[in-house]
Amino acid sequence: MDNNKNIVVGFSVGDLNGVGLEIILSIFEDKRMLDFCTPVIFGSQKSLNFVKKHFKFSMHFFYAKEFDQISEQKINVITSYKDDFEINFGEENNRIGEVAIESFTAATKALKDGHIDVLVTAPINKYNIQSDAFKFPGHTNYLNEQLEGRALMFMVNDGLRVGLLTDHVPVKEVSSHITSELIQNKIKTVYESLQADFQISKPKIAVLGINPHNGDNGVIGKEDDEVLRPALEKIKKEGKLVFGPYAADSFFGSDNYKNFDAIIASYHDQGLIPFKTLSFGEGVNYTAGLNKIRTSPDHGTAYDIAGKGLANANSMKKAIFEGIKIFNNRKEYQELTADPLKTGKKKI
């Protein structure tokens, strides 16, 4: 991308029967947003015009046939699926699920090929997206396959950042997934992301226990003593400021989380329940650990309020700005840590 141009932010439309496209368009109804980024929506003329008309938005769309036609100060659209369906707010529909994935995979390819700088994904329904062509529990797993690096779900809201050892895994399988190698890899990903993406030179990371009360010396489970603690000791010997395991039940209520740059939870609900309690509507789901940047709002399709004009766009707006900020931070970090012998010639 040309350094003199706005950061190009791509949007997958998500479940069109939910609130995703509504909140995207509501944000860009404010023309000042075009000063911060150049949006590219992976959608279609019919669906965008339907949502625009329904909510009485006044913006205009620019339909680009090729990526080199993308224009600043315009809401660009790349056609990514056929208009062979009807939008019925609040309803679950398999064709709408297919459309959500067609938009998402097209946007991911554009991200991978460098046509967009940041990808922001609108919420999907994890049930109706399943097909023979797409067998992933969500965005993160697909991105992990398509992009370079190891994906990690990282929920962020200002100074609160929560990462997960396991994400969309049934509770009964959590302990079998947590190995010493997994723990070390996830903490390495969080540590490097805090440095490169959030400009924290010496991160402090807290790790929550796997079992209640960290297993109570084996009474409630042995995984904390036999797997988690030894793995953390290895990481500490590398010089990283990693602390724990902490009992999860009191960690957030005691405000201990405020003493750390990131918290790593063992499984989905252990991390996301406190995060969303503290940040719901303001948080951002960031996929750390990959060579490209993807963010999303911290909520789902919200079928119950879809089409009613009640959706709050704050989390989506924060996802946009968080993606832009991370893009700039990462670019600066890469410049600061680049080998000068490889990046430039010494002047005489």
Rank of each mutant, 00 (worst) to 15 (best):
K347N: 11
S131W: 10
T301Y: 07
Q334V: 00
H213M: 11
L152K: 00
I187W: 05
K56A: 14
D2F: 04
Q45E: 15
G323L: 01
E322A: 14
N157G: 02
K234M: 04
P170W: 03
I348T: 07
G149E: 02
I264A: 06
G307N: 10
V162I: 15
I7H: 05
K347T: 12
P123G: 10
N76I: 01
F55I: 00
F321D: 06
I326Q: 06
A110P: 02
G289M: 01
D255T: 07
E66I: 02
S131L: 09
V219N: 09
E322W: 00
K222T: 14
K234C: 01
D158L: 00
T179K: 08
N256G: 04
T121F: 07
N3Q: 11
A265K: 03
H54T: 13
D68P: 02
I183E: 02
G20W: 12
I70D: 06
N256H: 12
G18V: 06
T189A: 09
A306Y: 10
H177V: 03
D132Y: 06
V227C: 05
T166C: 06
M316V: 02
M155K: 00
A288P: 05
S315N: 04
G14H: 07
D158T: 00
A306G: 10
I24N: 04
N49W: 01
Y257W: 15
I200M: 09
K53T: 13
I326P: 02
N214H: 06
K204E: 14
I24P: 01
E92L: 13
G10C: 07
L272F: 03
I24K: 02
K186D: 07
D15S: 06
N217W: 03
R150L: 14
E148C: 08
M33P: 00
E223P: 13
G344M: 14
I348F: 07
P203S: 11
T105Y: 03
E91L: 14
D2K: 13
H177I: 00
G138P: 13
S175Y: 05
Q195R: 15
E92T: 13
K52W: 05
K331L: 12
G215E: 06
A231T: 10
T140A: 07
K126L: 12
Q146L: 12
F55S: 00
A151Y: 00
G90C: 10
G218V: 10
G281Q: 07
E282Q: 11
S296Q: 09
I70A: 09
I293R: 09
H115Q: 14
G20P: 03
F61I: 02
A106K: 14
N4E: 10
N49S: 08
K82H: 09
Q195G: 12
I96N: 05
N17D: 06
H168Q: 12
I24D: 04
